[in-house]
Design a protein around this nucleic acid. Structure first.
Lengths: 286, 286
DNA sequence: ACGCTGTGATAACCAAGTGGCATGGACGCG
DNA sequence: CGCGTCCATGCCACTTGGTTATCACAGCGT
């Protein structure tokens, strides 16, 4: 009988990690839920896919046999989704941070025959979904990993400000000097975001001293939360001030910090006219 | 996001028939259920797949684009299932009618290292799931359609008896002459079963006069039901007497009717040693 | 016009599926 | 022996998928 594609994703995650708890984390579900789904899948297929004991998890012969086929099914489905988007003249645009500034409405107006699907992508992916081909274009902050694989157009160049708890000793000042922040714990992007993490920690602007990371943040809510809780301070782009400066969070300009560059990026090898039209529309709307 | 493979089957069924009611029948679900699922699929994919009005249903461009991909996904999954069965040393054996006679336990005993998955197949498929590659071997009654595609070994040769309502005028006799049944309405297999339908209607044994079909039957329960309800009489194999002769149904021998042949069949082009082992075990168990 | 027929959509309801949290229980380790 | 790790289980809430009954609409025949 037919399975849910989700179960195949679950299966592959467990097969990859050989560890239910970690696979569950990656999938953003609880470990019991994952356990239960895998058991259900095994029951449905009438085959045991994993041998588990308290020490570790191994693939059975059947499990090993399933891995490539599960991958094939999922990639066939991915192709199907792509075909649908093409058929519907739709581009998926990832957004690490909202470009804001009225840009999107202007672009949509110029591309009335193209439907744009805007998708918020979590911050652990510095390519905004481009690398995994989950998006066709993405608003991301430089630097990007593997820049030779992408092209981009700058959308905004904005100073980096610092977000502080309202109760912070520096919150009283109208401007903060970066030197005064050196000993503060900083909120950081997940390590998977690579050079971008360092960029928002302003590692370049620091003397040769390790940064203290107070917490990792993966979206706006977590950031506000973490700053309010005093877990650390955080550099943000000027354009995002309104998203962050609320409740107990204040935002202050920082002296002597190079501005950040928000770009619309796309895969260099993606030469679809539809995408070119999007890029042209964005350029024209700046 | 990921879909349920069932939804793809549903989609393909509607795409093929361009008719919700008929597709629903084929899928053995109600028409509203199918309608709802297709709507949900469209909503999930954010694309409309069909244009419907009261007269007919048409595929949209997106729908047309999805068809081949949906087929690809399903066939990839089919391959996955096959791989699992191979990995688990499992053969799927279809059963139009239980071979009974203690055959299956004997075969299992001889094939302790092979796991047999026995599956009841509905009577509208005279190949017992072999044609659709849903089974690796099947216990079916001759004649088979496209016999050049299959091989088989005879498992039992059994007289055909007639099942009658207990209240039937002929039920009082210990033996029934087929001539006395000519004017009776008969229960028939679905038309899709082709020559097999004629076989169990004993068309060969009739003078050139059309058969009256009282109802179509697709499994044992329906048969008992229909006979009891007096919708018609029905030829059955001697070995199935115990399945049918209950409640208000009696079974009587019929004079002058060639016996039926129950065979284990498999696809001629299927040369897997595992299958050969099954055939050998069946032969040895006769 | 009027009612019948065929067809998809909708409503109300119920069962099964899916997820979360708390907790259990087996094993290895200091 | 207690503790930590890690998968399984029990229980509960919410969602999903299915059923039946009914509606709405368009042709069609009278």
């Amino acid at each position: 009988m037919d399975a849910h594609l989700r179960d195949l994703r679950y299966f592959l995650a467990v097969a990859e990690h050989l560890h239910f708890t970690r696979a569950a984390e990656e999938l953003y579900v609880s470990q019991p839920a994952l356990s239960k789904q895998i058991r259900a899948l095994e029951k449905q297929l009438r085959v045991s896919l994993f041998e588990r004991d308290h020490r570790d998890v191994r693939l059975t012969a059947a499990g090993k046999a399933l891995v490539p086929h599960a991958q094939a099914v999922l990639s066939a489905w991915h192709a199907a989704e792509q075909a649908l988007l093409t058929a519907a003249n739709t581009l998926v645009v990832g957004m690490s941070t909202a470009p804001g500034r009225g840009l999107l409405p202007a672009v949509r107006a110029r591309l009335s025959d193209v439907s744009l699907q805007v998708r918020q992508v979590p911050w652990h992916d510095p390519t905004g979904g481009l690398a995994a081909e989950e998006t066709d274009a993405a608003f991301v902050w430089l630097p990007m990993p593997a820049p030779e694989r992408y092209r981009w157009v700058t959308v905004a160049t904005e100073p980096r400000l610092v977000a502080l708890p309202a109760t912070h000793r520096l919150a009283a000042q109208t401007t903060v000097d970066f030197a005064d922040l050196l000993d503060e714990p900083f909120l950081a992007l997940p390590t998977s975001s690579g050079a971008l993490r360092d960029y928002w920690l302003a590692v370049d602007a620091r003397p040769d001293r390790p940064v203290t990371v107070g917490a990792e943040i993966a979206n706006t809510e977590e950031t506000v939360e973490a700053v309010t809780a005093g877990l650390g301070v955080c550099l943000i782009a000027a354009g995002n001030t309104s998203l962050i400066a609320r409740d107990g969070v204040v935002v202050r300009p920082v002296g002597n910090l190079a501005p950040g560059e928000l770009v619309l990026a796309w895969r260099r090898d993606d030469r679809r006219p539809l995408l070119a039209a999007l890029v042209a529309a964005v350029r024209a709307s700046l």
